[in-house]
Every structure is written in C-alpha cells, then in structure tokens.
Design a protein around this nucleic acid. Structure first.
Lengths: 313, 313
DNA sequence: CCAAAGCATAAGTAAATATGATTACTAATA
DNA sequence: TATTAGTAATCATATTTACTTATGCTTTGG
C-alpha cells in the first residue's frame, strides 16, 4: 500500500511538475494550467513535502528553475501516471460510447452448438473491437453467481429461474426430442412415443441440467426410465444413438442436425420442454454490448425456438 | 493534459478503489486504510464524480458491492498508478541512500585519456549500479552550462574559472610538455628549451582549450609560434611528432606515455601550466555519486598531477 | 542603483474532507 | 410478520486544504 504523505499526491501536482518543466517557469506553468503562480508554487511545494525531497532548484531571480535528481525521478513517473489517467478517461469514454470492451458470456453446451455462434457472429459484425469470451457450465448456479459477481456480462440459463438480483428474459422453449439410428425402423416414424422406451432403455444425461426435466417428464407419462448409457457429452450421446444402442432423449438444440445417420423425432405425447433464458446482471453492471447481445439473442430465439411454449418468469 | 475533474483524483482515491475491491466492503476498506466508512464512501464518490461513471454497484444490504465495467477499467489503471507511486518512493529512497542512479560526467579530451578511466573505475567498484555517462567537449562553456541546467552531474574544467553558480575544486596543474620523435637528437635531451622552436615550427591545437595558453606562454618566452600542423586530435598530434615533423607542445595528460617512439620532455624554461578543475552544480542538484566522484578525482589528482601549481579559485 | 523577472509567503476566503450520528435498505431469523 | 444484523448513504459540523491576491525577497541587466 502507498503510505504516508504520498497518498495525498494528486494528478494536479504531477501535472504541475510537468508544466513547470515544460514551460520553464512557475508563472508560465500557472498560465497554462489556469492557476495563479502562487498556486503552482504551493502545488509543487505539496509534492515536495510528499516526496521529502525538492524537485526543483530555484536559483532565485530571473534564472530558470532546474530539476533536481529527485525531480527527474518524479518527472519520469509523473509522465507515466498522467498518461495512464488520460488513457483511463479514453477508456471510460469508449465504454460510454458502447464501443469495444469485454463481453463475457456464460453458456451451457446445448446452447453453444446452435444459438451461440449465430449471436456472437452478429454482434461481432456490429462491434468488431469487442473481446468476446465464452464460459461454459453445466448448471445454472455458477452462471448466476458469476453474473452477480460481475465476472460474466450475460449468460444463457435453463429455466425456470427465480433470482431477484439478475434480469431474466425468456427466449423460448427447447423441446426434447428422440434421437434414433437412421434405419428401416425409424424411417417409418414421424414421431416417437416415449412409451416405446419401456423395456429397451434410453440414452441420457448424467446429472446435467436437463436430466431431471427429462426423467420427470417421462415418468409422468408412465415410462420407467432405464439408462443404457449416460454421459454429459452431447456428441457422445448422439454417437451412441447413431449406432443403435438405444434412443437418446435430448434437447433439440443439443442435436447436431447435420448428422445423416440419425433420425430426430418429436415426442408424441410430448414432455414439458426446457425453457431457454438469457440473463443480464443488475443495470449498474450492464455493458452496452451485453444489452445488445440480449436483444440479438431474443431475435434469434424467436426464429429458432418454439416461442409458444415459453413460460414467463 | 489531463482535464476536468480527473485532475482532482488523488492517490488515496485510487487506493480506496483497490481496498474496497480487495476487502469486499467499504467498512473493511476503511479499517484497512485508517479511515471511517463514511470517508471511504465519499472518496469513492469523488472518484466516481471525476470519472462520470459509477465504479461500484451497491446492491444494498449485506450483499457485496461489485465492480461495474467502468470500475474494472478504473481498477486496472489504478493498480498501475499506485504501483508507480510506490516505485517512485523506492527510487527516491534509493537516491537518498546514494545508491545507483545516473552520473553524467563532462570532460575534455586530455582528461579522458588518463584521469577519467581511473576515477570511473574506482566509483564503479564502490557503486556498481551506477549508470555512468561521459560527454566530451572542447570548451569549458558548454560544460558549465550543462552543469547549471542539470544535464551534467559533474565536469572537468580547465582553469581558471569564475562562475558563481557552480562549485569548482582545483585538482592540480597539468604542465605543458614537448613531444619529440625518439631519435638520436632527442635522446641527448633531458628537457626542451622552447626557444628551439624558433625556425623549426611546432605542432599544436587548432582552437582547442589549451591553444591560447600555449601560445601566450611561448610568446612570453620570446618564441615566435609557427604552426607546422594543427589538429584537435591528441593522437594525431602525437603521431606527427613521432614522425619527426616537428615537436608538439601538449598538456602532459594528453600524451600517450606508452608510445616508445616519442620522447616526452619538460619545458625549460617552463610556461604556465593548465589548471585542471573538477566542478559540481549547486548543492540542490548534486547527487551523492557526483560528490563522491569529485572526492575521488581530488585523490587521484593529488597522486598524478603537480598539485603545487594549483591556483585556488 | 533601479527596474524587471521570478518564486515564496501571508492572509483571507471558498471548497473539500473527515468524523460521528443518523437514516435507509436488505437478508436472515425468530 | 416483526426483529435483528449488516451495509452504505446522508447530514451536520469542525477541520483541513487550496486558491487568490498582495507583498516581499533575490538576482539580473541596464
């Protein structure tokens, strides 16, 4: 910690030092800074008191003041400090204008596959200087905590969420679908009855955020859930289904739709879908970029998600 | 120039920012800094007013305060600035202790050959961290001006010098000698009578600092000075003498005594020698290293120069 | 020896600051 | 629901700080 009188140094004092050096006299420095000569004299005296050393030798009379060795040291640091303060203001101005800066985004895997690249691509087109960082998590809780702590600027959540310290905006519903190997059997189907899972088992998540929703939804339909394989890696789940081990019940957004070897079927009767939310921190913590990100997310969500199934929070 | 309210930012304000971030609450930050909670609150408020942006989100109640985006920016710069101030104090302390730092030394050529390496070697042994810089000049005036302006910390001068704004210490006399080719003729001599120069001419300086002293000294003895060759390069003068072009009249310190092909002879009768001086700037501008340099210079001068001829200034 | 240039200092006033007490707000708890 | 504890903001006041003007001191140059 900076100690003693050094704490009372102000940017003005360092600027006075610079001004006197550059102008050559206290009087001219005062004119440049908008102070009286006496004020500059007192400011430099305050700086000297803080440092415990004179920064100028004042030969007296019309002879010019000269930096002491200590003054040369102080000048070097003063230039760095005043430059930093200038840069700080420039950064703040850029922040106010909404340009550049950081955007730390929290997600979970099924969002990362489909929605996120679209949204990030659009916001980077609008604001190329933005530094986008994406953090992935399996659960809502760490994302919410990071939003509150200011470590994230925006986050996707799986609803419903009840948390007063953040603002939560529903994007729409992400329905659960059945993923089957693309064979003669599945080719006949246009939807999948979850009751068929009884006896053959299912591929599912292992404690991930959607697991409970799926299990509860299936049980409500009378399905006795028997896991044949469990993983939290969406790619692995899909690979297992592709090889005919068993159907996988997954959120639609988590499915790689470009895989020709699987057949993706809606559930009929359906189970309650997962709600996709976008969350922002308290207004004071919001960046312009994060707000814009949320706007874009809502737009993209309306075109890609079943907004009809949204549950207001 | 830093403008507006930013000028009124103090180191304390930036430290308050850091302390609140690190301690988590205004109250604890106040305890750490030795202020009341209210003081920290006002200091942070002052910083926010200067920046025009809040740096903390205060959710209210027992919930922790959180840095805003603007606060994160400010924190980054605040760390740099407070670190710089710490470093400044460390530099000032080192200066007070006399360690390290800069030593800018002004010289002229004949000193550089012999005296300077000895002195620099000794002071670097004592203070290895010292950054020694040597500036050479032909005349006293620019050296004196640089001392007054603080551009030099110490300088050799050729006396006498009358200048109230610097302190001048005599080191001793540097006698003028005759440099002849080492041949059968010169081998017979143990001294050189300047009258012998009449008719054969002389090798001398071309407007250098010693030229006038030599000319006046020779003329006072009744020698009519006829230059055969003139240069300000001591090596070139000695080379010409070595080849027998004519004798060179040089300051003893400027002669390379290791040259076996020349013979260096005292003048008899002698001419008034040049006084070697060491000069320091006004006390406020003096570094510990410069003062020590002058001490060493006096010691070395006593062993290498004819101190008896010194003229007090 | 006087005028000019330059910085320091003193006095007065205005502004900023610290403190302690109080208020307001929130979360947790009874 | 009321209470308690923890937190920051606010208020009033005394103190400190900072700026301005005026004055004095020192040195240079005519």
């Amino acid at each position: 910690m900076v100690e003693g009188k050094l704490k009372h140094i102000e940017i003005r004092h360092l600027e006075a030092l610079r001004a006197v050096v550059e102008e050559g006299t206290f009087t001219d420095a005062g004119i440049r800074l908008g102070y009286s000569q006496a004020a500059v004299s007192q400011q430099v005296a305050a700086l000297e008191a803080a440092l415990g050393e004179s920064v100028f030798d004042r030969p007296g009379g019309p002879r010019p003041v000269v930096l002491t060795p200590a003054g040369r040291l102080a000048l070097r640091h003063a230039q760095v400090v005043t430059d930093r303060i200038d840069q700080l203001r420039a950064d703040i101005d850029a922040l106010k204008a909404g340009m550049g800066g950081r955007l730390a985004c929290g997600t979970f895997q099924s969002v990362s596959v489909e929605l996120l690249p679209t949204i990030v691509g659009r916001i980077l087109t609008e604001t190329p200087d933005l530094q986008v960082r994406v953090d992935e998590a399996d659960e809502n809780e760490p994302l919410i905590a990071s939003l509150i702590a200011g470590d994230l600027d925006v986050a996707f959540l799986a609803g419903p969420v009840q948390e007063p310290d953040i603002e939560v905006i529903p994007l729409g519903a992400d329905p659960f679908v059945a993923v089957l190997a693309n064979d003669e059997y599945s080719a006949e189907l246009t939807s999948y009855d979850p009751m068929l899972l009884n006896g053959i088992g299912v591929i599912g998540e292992n404690g991930g955020g959607a697991q409970l929703l799926i299990e509860n939804g299936l049980r409500a339909l009378g399905v006795s859930v028997q896991y044949v394989f469990r993983t939290n890696d969406n790619g692995a789940m899909q690979a297992m289904a592709r090889n005919g081990l068993a159907p996988a019940i997954m959120p639609l957004l988590a499915v790689d739709a470009h895989d020709p070897n699987v057949r993706v079927l809606p559930l009929n009767p359906p189970i309650p879908p997962r709600q996709i939310l976008i969350a922002l921190p308290r207004p004071a913590l919001r960046t312009a970029a994060a707000t814009r990100f949320a706007q874009i997310a809502v737009e993209v969500g309306q075109s890609r998600l079943n907004a009809g199934g949204a549950i207001p929070v």
